[in-house]
């Protein structure tokens, strides 16, 4: 079953999202350059929990007017399979990639009222101060109390909020862009990612937001838990008997997105698909699912488009 949208065939299927714990932090620095360097480092090697400790990505750049210290900031989202895993990943990544980066500071990006849990990441980071860390309090007896830790470092001082909000979130939102050739498929995918990032609290954890090597569960090799998504590999579309690659399609790129809630993921998928089908040469859009065996969220492509 499929339907037509802007002259492109959209398969009437769904992306199978699954539950993860998500958190959001704001990294600030003396200027945009250093905020982005810290963010790039922190979000490295975190495309998929298939082989990474967590999934992270840059959500957006934050203007100085909107950061707590009025410096340029970058919002990062981190996703883990459990609160413990998430907390561990945040601690090690912040400790190795942000704490070490000159001039940076970090702040919680999910207010307590919107969070399901508060993770004591900053409270753990403080021990790096070796006893010289200083507690910073705000709003005692007036408004919502906030705690920070100031950690002396060689360059000056590192500032971290004590607690970081975490939520039960949605990972694995996805769709496949099937094009006639590589260049137009890449352009469509780039446009899709650009559109997706207009939706707040969404990340696309793969390189540039794109995954050109989508995977299926399992392999012919017993030691491998995931392998190339053979039905969607155009180069073997006639060799592989179960191929789902249409005849005129010679390149496919997958976009994977995680978000803090299902409506945001659905809407982000919708705006992404809309942007992708604007590019000539795109033949079909579909999504990856495992018949409902992997996750509890079934995010239909049709519903995604309707949500925009």
């Amino acid at each position: 079953m499929s339907f037509n949208f802007n002259g492109v065939e959209i398969e009437d299927t769904f992306a199978e999202g699954f539950s993860m714990w998500g958190s959001r932090i704001i990294v600030t620095a003396i200027n945009r350059k250093w905020a982005n360097i810290a963010a790039q480092n922190m979000t490295g090697f975190a495309t998929s929990v298939i082989a990474c400790d967590c999934e992270t990505g840059v959500e957006r750049e934050v203007s100085p007017e909107s950061t707590p210290d009025r410096r340029p900031g970058t919002a990062i989202m981190v996703f883990g399979f459990s609160k413990k895993k998430l907390s561990e990943s945040m601690l090690s990544r912040i400790g190795q990639c942000v704490l070490t980066c000159p001039t940076t500071a970090i702040f919680n990006g999910i207010p307590r009222a919107e969070s399901d849990e508060m993770l004591d990441v900053g409270k753990s980071l403080r021990f790096f101060g070796d006893g010289y860390q200083v507690k910073m309090r705000m709003n005692d007896g007036l408004g919502e109390r906030v705690r920070f830790w100031r950690i002396p470092v060689m360059e000056g001082e590192f500032l971290t909020e004590e607690l970081y909000g975490a939520k039960k979130a949605v990972a694995g939102g996805n769709f496949l862009i099937m094009g006639e050739e590589e260049r137009s498929t890449l352009e469509a995918a780039e446009r899709a990612v650009e559109a997706i990032h207009t939706i707040p609290r969404i990340i696309t954890p793969f390189p540039g937001g794109l995954c050109r090597s989508g995977s299926k569960v399992g392999s012919k090799y017993a030691f491998l838990k995931a392998s190339t998504n053979t039905p969607f590999c155009p180069t073997i579309k006639h060799t592989f008997k179960g191929s789902k690659t249409p005849e005129k399609v010679n390149s496919i790129i997958e976009i994977v997105l995680n978000g803090l809630d299902e409506p945001s993921v659905r809407r982000a998928m919708g705006v992404g698909i809309k942007a992708a089908v604007e590019v000539g040469g795109i033949k079909k859009i579909t999504a990856v699912n495992f018949g409902g065996k992997l996750g509890k969220f079934k995010i239909g492509l049709k519903e995604s488009l309707e949500a925009t």
Binding site: M136, M138, R150
Partner: peptide
């Protein structure tokens, strides 16, 4: 002698939430 980031957070609160406008010039 340094420019502490934490002070920016306090001074921003003073300037914007408590009407202590002169705080902004020390950020």
């Amino acid at each position: 002698t340094y420019r502490p980031t934490f002070m920016r957070v306090y001074l921003q609160q003073l300037s914007e939430n408590l009407g202590v406008k002169e705080a902004a010039k020390f950020t």
